[in-house]
Design a protein around this nucleic acid. Structure first.
Lengths: 331, 331
DNA sequence: GACCGACGTGGAATCGATACCACATTAATG
DNA sequence: CATTAATGTGGTATCGATTCCACGTCGGTC
């Protein structure tokens, strides 16, 4: 970074003081028409770009919101970020993205990093909940919103994982399915791992359907793990007639397995996922899934941050989002 | 942002001067063991987080590389960013993402924005080339690398669009196709719009195949536009026996159209895309496509930035990346 | 003609760090 | 024993902006 032109240079060129230049640029205080013109002319000619750092340092506001993602390259994250960005940009804020590569310790590390950059607020797309994380967040006395998990004592925006899951299972049951297999994920991700499983179990119980232990399988969010879980499900003595995978990717992995084994979908096996990914629409047969309205989730999360920035203290506020079942050819 | 603890507070608590605290934290200069311990203890106890802004301001290095994306939410961009991040993180740099929502004027705006934040370098995932952009880049006297387009006078990393395209068409020809339809995009995107079309045309010409004007259709990167382009192609008097779409999404849109019209793929119509998206692997029939190794592209781009940061001036250096055809069920 | 408010402008302090310089103190060398 | 080198520490200027305060110059009012 070579020596850039500073406000001092502009002032000299315009024949005024730094103060006056600042006033012109920030449009406050009294400035004569003549001085204003001189300043703007100098700014133009010199290609002056103010230093955001100096400004932040003096004003203690950076105009930046930090967003911590589990991974950059997921469709869900992309959509959420789009929603967040749209909303924040409208209000003059920029976003600074960091990602944790799914490592819990990096969440804390990233919070510190963002604080060192003086972000005005932090949005965390949470994938787990542990005490150390909560402690770190509570020490962070800037606006903070978690999305995706309910974090104790932290303003959170959550998907309605339990009811979405419950609805899916009920929908399958209403189509006559009684043996429904389940592909979940590990419980450290409370929303996806625990709530979605509980929704499944409770729906089965409510309808007096027993769940064979072999019907509950686990994956790790990848296509492959969905494929493998489906292998295990189809090997059951009492093979299910439907598979509910808690993510589209795993559901699509399962579809691949079923195709290879010539198990017809949906005739012999119905399949349901969650996420409303692009993929879900374009696989054959088109996958039934649940739309979580990720962009909207991002927007709402951003709004909560904005409210806090405006001074409202909405400590520990919780928002539960809505969802929508999308029934396609796979059921 | 409340008043954070500063280096001054730490110094007072540790009973030393600010200078000494700085020395401990940056591990330079002479510091006694005793002083060091006192400082570290104070830092720990007070939860001191240094202000990156103050540091940047003084040292003129931010440790941040700006990355300008056309859109956040595309698979290609995600992959590239992953590659960039991996490489830069290894070297102690962070990335600051901005997106242009595909608007050319926002590219320039974002460059200025990043400069105001004193980024040490900029990576631009370019989608177009215009003189104003080039001017802005050339005024920007910090390390700069463009990815995806060859920009005159700018260090660029490019995909081999022409030859990839050429290879696809040759591959189709070698399978006996003589009437090959093309779905392109507008020419303002030189790499995708011009080079890929030229590859197609030249391959056809080399093999003495004529191209009916109706065989060349255009879309706008979306599924829908691919669908519509396929509608027009199938309505041709002399319908092609193969469709080459310059992106996977448009190719998959085309597949959707063909399925609706009961045109068998690949028996009646072969389809080829570019991008090696997740989608391409999971649609039915699986889409033949070209892998551009996006992560690797990101890594190489990052390396070029790093080299420039280390002082090498590699003005106007060009790197052309390799690619790989992936033949699947759609041909 | 003294006073007051509206304008218009600049000087100087400040934000939180780093870096240069000056100044001790101690150890090593001839 | 004097001189140099190595080790440790703090004061102060500096980075590039904003902001507070002080100080002019008007014109109008009582």
């Amino acid at each position: 970074m070579k020596n850039m032109t500073t406000i001092k240079d502009v002032a000299k060129r315009a024949g005024v003081s730094r103060t006056t230049v600042s006033r012109v640029l920030n449009d406050n205080g009294y400035v004569s028409q003549e001085a204003r013109e001189q300043v703007l002319k100098a700014v133009q000619e010199m290609g002056y770009i103010p230093s955001a750092h100096a400004k932040t340092m003096r004003t203690k506001r950076s105009g930046v919101i930090g967003v911590i993602l589990p991974r950059i390259s997921t469709e869900t994250a992309s959509r959420v970020v789009n929603g967040i960005e749209e909303e924040l940009a409208d209000n003059g804020y920029q976003i600074l993205l960091t990602n944790t590569q799914l490592k819990p310790e990096k969440e804390i590390e990233n919070i510190k990093l963002l604080r060192s950059r003086q972000v005005d607020g932090i949005i965390l797309l949470a994938t787990n909940r542990n005490q150390e994380l909560l402690n770190t967040i509570n020490e962070t006395n800037i606006p903070f919103v978690a999305l995706g998990q309910e974090l104790e004592g932290v303003t959170s925006v959550m998907y309605d994982d339990y009811h979405a899951s419950y609805s899916i299972v009920e929908s399958l049951i209403s189509k006559g399915h009684e043996r429904i297999g389940f592909i979940g994920v590990q419980e450290s991700d409370h929303a996806v791992g625990v709530l979605r499983k509980e929704g499944y179990k409770d729906a089965m119980k409510t309808h007096n359907l027993t769940v064979d232990n072999n019907w509950i399988q686990y994956g790790d969010f990848t296509f492959e793990s969905g494929y493998e879980a489906a292998e295990r499900l189809t090997a059951c003595a009492e093979m299910p007639t439907a598979i509910f995978a808690v993510t589209d990717r795993m559901a699509i992995g399962a579809l691949g397995c079923l195709r290879e084994r010539n198990i017809q979908v949906p005739e012999e096996m119905a399949v349901y996922g969650i996420g409303a990914s692009d993929l879900s629409k374009h696989v054959t047969p088109a996958l039934s899934t649940v739309d979580y309205f990720n962009e909207d989730a991002g927007r709402q999360t951003a709004q909560l941050i904005l409210q806090q920035l405006k001074g409202k203290t909405l400590e520990d506020k919780k928002i539960k989002l809505s969802y929508r079942l999308i029934e396609r050819d796979s059921v």
